[in-house]
Design a binder for these strands. Sequence first.
DNA 1: TGAGAAAGTCAACACGGTGTTCTAAAACAT
DNA 2: ATGTTTTAGAACACCGTGTTGACTTTCTCA
Lengths: 189, 189
Amino acid sequence: METKKEDRRVRRTKKLLTQALTQLLQQKQVNEITVRELTDLADMNRGTFYLYYKDIFDMLEKIEDELFENLNGIIALRGNANVSEQAKPILRDLFTFIEDNQEMCRVLLSPNGDMNFLHRLNEVMREKCLQLYQTVELKGTEDEFDYHYSFIVFGCAGIIRAWVNRGCPESAEEMSELTSRMILSGGLA
Amino acid sequence: METKKEDRRVRRTKKLLTQALTQLLQQKQVNEITVRELTDLADMNRGTFYLYYKDIFDMLEKIEDELFENLNGIIALRGNANVSEQAKPILRDLFTFIEDNQEMCRVLLSPNGDMNFLHRLNEVMREKCLQLYQTVELKGTEDEFDYHYSFIVFGCAGIIRAWVNRGCPESAEEMSELTSRMILSGGLA
DNA sequence: TGAGAAAGTCAACACGGTGTTCTAAAACAT
DNA sequence: ATGTTTTAGAACACCGTGTTGACTTTCTCA
């Protein structure tokens, strides 16, 4: 079922384009980036771009698709161990994944970033939180659940954003520890 | 020092353009919106748009500028009362402001929204949090402060996003209560 | 290693949105 | 009513877009 590897040239082309896009996104907003300057920077023919992407935004979306495809595999629940024992390793794997893709994640969470990326990241994390904490008792009305999870999930995104902006100085292990504490005991206190 | 009112026609033009943009942002991403279709929807000459805005993104930025200008005035500290007594009313005023601009806020925080808006919202809230809670003792290292605040501030943005997505069914008072609880005692627990 | 397949290069093209400019008409303030 | 400001309308050159066709290069695999 594994997707067989693409042609070496294809991998090279996509990699060069992704690198160029990442670089450009550190300098300007997505809308200011033209296919022409992207392919110029990647030093390839403009027509080649259109073999794989419809436009810049389509490219960004496909990059995110791949990112989330990998992420989903990584944070999947393992076997049927106790959920409370799974939270930590999943968080650690999540932060490890973020670290491995920190340039792209930093760019996507920057002011020039993509709100849809944050939206999708939230959906993944929300679903995972629901799985992990569905047995945990929450006080307050059922409507408040939405706000609780929104707070937590966006808060995690905020931690991730701060972490990649600093260049990931702390280890994924440390971050998962910190994040667990924040989720369970709150921001202050 | 009050900015004297613009010509009635100018106000009308900007209002129509803003309404049209808000409507279009509910249907498609910013990059897919052309000046032509925007002015067509607003039923005005295309050239008129360029009297006030450089392009669509410039327009969005100016709209955000005005939003934050109002917001900054609203959440300014009052006199020299006790800080702990100011948190609640400021949060209430913040949510009231969000409620008054909920269409635009909902759009800006949607998947089609603007990461820069979230960035600026965070800066405002972060600064305010620092003023309010600078006397509160936090445990952990100084480096953790960044993560604490990022968690809290993004978490608040998450609450706001969930709230406007639901159509602001709860009152601003209720939301400030809920948010205070979340910040002080954490998401769960 | 060679042959066929796949991918990239290069030049060219029509298309459409952009941003600007001009004049005339309409709405405004007084 | 008058002078000012704003908008409409049309025209313009410009440029990025997205596609096409013929060619060259690179890869795969038998």
